[in-house]
Simulated assay, not measured.
Amino acid sequence: MNWFSALAIYFLFWFLALFLVLPFFARTGVEAGEALIKGQAESAPQRFHAGAIAKWTTIVGTVLFAAFYLNYVNGWITADMLDYWN
């Protein structure tokens, strides 16, 4: 696999992991027990933890990419194995 292709696939896994990680850091003001500001939506997050989100996204994305790359190198699951009708 070309290094540029591997980098592009890693970023795809990173953004997938971002959407997997984001809900774990979302706490509303109601859940945190704080009063809402006038005009604030009840679903608005209380704080945005960009550093923690980036750290966990990188960890999860790297683990997912490592599993993908190991499968690519070792051929554990191939496209032929997934073809149901043949």
Score class of each variant (00 low, 15 high):
M1N: 07
M1Q: 09
M1T: 08
M1P: 11
W3L: 13
W3G: 06
F4K: 14
F4D: 09
F4I: 12
A6M: 15
L7D: 06
A8N: 14
A8S: 14
Y10E: 06
F11R: 11
F11I: 12
L12H: 04
F13M: 11
W14Y: 15
W14R: 11
F15P: 10
F15R: 15
F15W: 15
L16S: 07
A17W: 09
L18E: 10
F19S: 03
L20I: 13
V21L: 03
L22I: 09
L22Q: 04
P23C: 01
F24D: 01
F24K: 06
F24C: 01
F25D: 04
A26R: 14
A26F: 05
A26D: 08
R27C: 03
R27G: 02
V30D: 05
E31P: 01
E31C: 01
E31W: 00
E31F: 00
A32G: 01
G33V: 03
G33T: 04
G33H: 08
E34S: 03
L36E: 05
K38H: 06
K38T: 09
K38R: 10
E42P: 00
E42S: 02
S43R: 01
A44H: 04
A44C: 03
P45N: 09
P45S: 04
P45W: 13
R47K: 06
R47I: 00
R47A: 00
F48N: 05
H49L: 00
A50Q: 03
A50T: 05
A50H: 07
G51L: 09
A52F: 09
A52T: 13
A52D: 14
I53W: 07
K55N: 06
K55T: 08
K55I: 08
W56C: 05
T57W: 11
T58M: 10
I59Q: 11
I59T: 10
G61S: 10
T62P: 02
V63S: 01
A66P: 02
A66N: 01
A67W: 09
F68K: 07
N71H: 03
N71G: 03
Y72G: 00
Y72A: 07
N74M: 11
W76H: 02
I77V: 15
I77K: 06
T78L: 11
T78A: 06
T78H: 13
A79P: 11
D80Y: 11
D80N: 12
M81Y: 09
Y84S: 14
Y84W: 14
W85G: 03
N86W: 14
